[in-house]
C-alpha cells in the first residue's frame, strides 16, 4: 500500500470543496477518463482577481482526490497572480508529502490551476511542445534535450536530479536514457564535424 501521510488520508476521506461551484467564472480541466486521472477545477474570482471560492471534481486515486482538495484550500483567498505561482511541490508539501510514484497527482493540480487562470483571463494555453516522456513530473523530450545540451547532464541520474523526470514511478527511465543518449550522440557528431 502507498505510504500516504495522515494529511493525504484526511483530504481523501473528508475532501474539502467537492462538487460543481455555482457561479464559477473560471474552470480548468485536465486529465481524462482514459488516463485514469482527471480533475475539473472551479474558481469564483472577484473583480480584484482574488479567488473567493474554489471547488473540484476529481476522478482518480486517493492522492488525486487529496491533491485536488489541498489545492482548493491553498488557493482560496489568493490573487490570481499569487495562485499562478503555486507549484505542484506546494501541493505535495501541504499534504505532508506524496509517494514519489504519486507526484503526478500534484502536477495535475498545478496544470488544472493554470488552465483555470487562463480561462478567466481568456488566454489560450498551448500544449507543451515535444513528446511527453515523464508523466509523473510532466517533462517532455524537448526539455530533456535542452537540459542535456545546456546544463551538461550526462545520464538519467543527472536528469532526475535536475528535472525530477524519472524520479517517480520510474517507468520513463528507459526513454529518458534513450533521449540522453541520442542527444549526446548528436552533440558529439556536431563537435566532431566542427
Amino acid at each position: 500500500m502507498w505510504n500516504y501521510s495522515e494529511k493525504v488520508m484526511e483530504h481523501f476521506l473528508k475532501p474539502k470543496n467537492v462538487g460543481e461551484l455555482e457561479g464559477a467564472n473560471a474552470i480548468g480541466e485536465t486529465g481524462s477518463l482514459n488516463c485514469g486521472d482527471a480533475l475539473k477545477l472551479y474558481l469564483k474570482v472577484n473583480e480584484n482577481e482574488r479567488i473567493i471560492d474554489a471547488s473540484f471534481m476529481t476522478f482518480g486515486c486517493a492522492s488525486a482526490v487529496a491533491s485536488s482538495s489541498a489545492l482548493t484550500e491553498i488557493i482560496k483567498g489568493m490573487t490570481l497572480d499569487d495562485a499562478a505561482k503555486v507549484t505542484n511541490d506546494d501541493i505535495a508539501d501541504y499534504l505532508g508529502g506524496l509517494p514519489k510514484e504519486k507526484m503526478h497527482c500534484s502536477v495535475m493540480g498545478q496544470a488544472a490551476l493554470k488552465k483555470a487562470i487562463a480561462d478567466f483571463r481568456g488566454i489560450q494555453i498551448l500544449e507543451k511542445p515535444g513528446e511527453m516522456i515523464c508523466e509523473c513530473f510532466d517533462v517532455t523530450d524537448l526539455e530533456i534535450i535542452d537540459a542535456v545540451k545546456n546544463n551538461g547532464l550526462e545520464n538519467t541520474e543527472d536528469v532526475t536530479n535536475y528535472l525530477k523526470a524519472g524520479g517517480g514511478c520510474g517507468k520513463c527511465l528507459d526513454r529518458i536514457e534513450e533521449v540522453v543518449h541520442k542527444t549526446m550522440a548528436t552533440m558529439e557528431a556536431h563537435s566532431e564535424a566542427e
Binding site: 500500500m1 477518463l33 486517493a62
Partner: peptide
C-alpha cells in the same frame, strides 16, 4: 462506472 479502483480499495480498507 466513473470511479477509480484505488479509491474504492482505500475506502474498503477503511
Amino acid at each position: 462506472d466513473a470511479v477509480e479502483g484505488e479509491s474504492i480499495l482505500m475506502l474498503m480498507n477503511q
